[in-house]
Amino acid sequence: MTQRNEVNTIVRTNKKMKEYLEILNSSDRKCVNFTDELSSLEFMEWDGCILVKQNTSSILPDQFIPNQFFQDRTGFEASYNHIHLNDYYEEIAENNPIELLQIAIMTLGQWEKYFKSNFPHKKFSTIISFDGEDCIIRFITERLYEPSWIADNINSYNEALLISTV
């Protein structure tokens, strides 16, 4: 499913994600209240990549060099910029993990605003994957000269996927 909203954001979901979104949107569900544990995350630009600042940021080399693990910058970003929400919201993960999905959607909305404001010349994809227990969010910079990191057929993935491109 592909949707476009008023700010030129394209959202794609696979069948599994649609099922989880229907649960979240059901009338008897309440909006989760949470303190934004992820609001303290900072972003940085490094050799054509936008990265979440992490403890390992200080050991990044001067420039990106393709290797056996990361053939391009997009693959490097996808790996470096992945965050397991279960690590930030352990109690929610244990008691009602689908609420992690709601937190992920809210977080990606904040990230997208930040990216549009601070990197208006770049195009980003923000990605949520959810397997019913573990929820991972990540983002990548879309590059015309590198292959897409996400397969065209997102229904082929085992986990639920939501991909938003801004």
Rank of each mutant, 00 (worst) to 15 (best):
D152K: 15
R12F: 04
S148F: 04
N8H: 10
T141M: 00
W149K: 06
H82W: 09
N96D: 15
E159M: 06
I140P: 00
P97K: 03
M1A: 11
E112W: 00
Q71C: 12
V7F: 11
Q3E: 05
E6D: 15
N5S: 02
G48I: 07
D72P: 05
T126R: 11
D47V: 06
N33D: 14
I150S: 02
N153A: 06
A78D: 13
A160H: 05
Q63M: 12
Y80I: 07
S39L: 13
E6H: 11
P66M: 07
S117V: 06
E37M: 14
L85F: 03
Y20K: 05
T13V: 11
E19Y: 11
F64M: 10
C49T: 06
Q102E: 13
Q68L: 15
Y145F: 10
G75K: 06
D87E: 12
L51Q: 01
S164H: 06
L85S: 03
D36T: 13
M106G: 02
P120Y: 09
S40W: 02
S26P: 07
E91H: 10
I10K: 08
Y20W: 15
Y157D: 05
Q102T: 04
F69I: 10
S27H: 09
E146N: 07
V7A: 13
G75S: 12
F130N: 01
G109R: 12
N67K: 08
L162M: 15
G132I: 11
W111A: 01
G109Q: 15
Q54L: 08
Y80Q: 02
S26V: 06
N96H: 08
S125Y: 03
R138H: 08
L108C: 05
T126H: 04
Q63T: 13
D47K: 08
I23V: 12
D28K: 04
T74D: 06
M44W: 07
D131M: 14
S58G: 07
F70K: 05
L162Y: 05
F115C: 01
K15V: 10
I128R: 01
S156K: 14
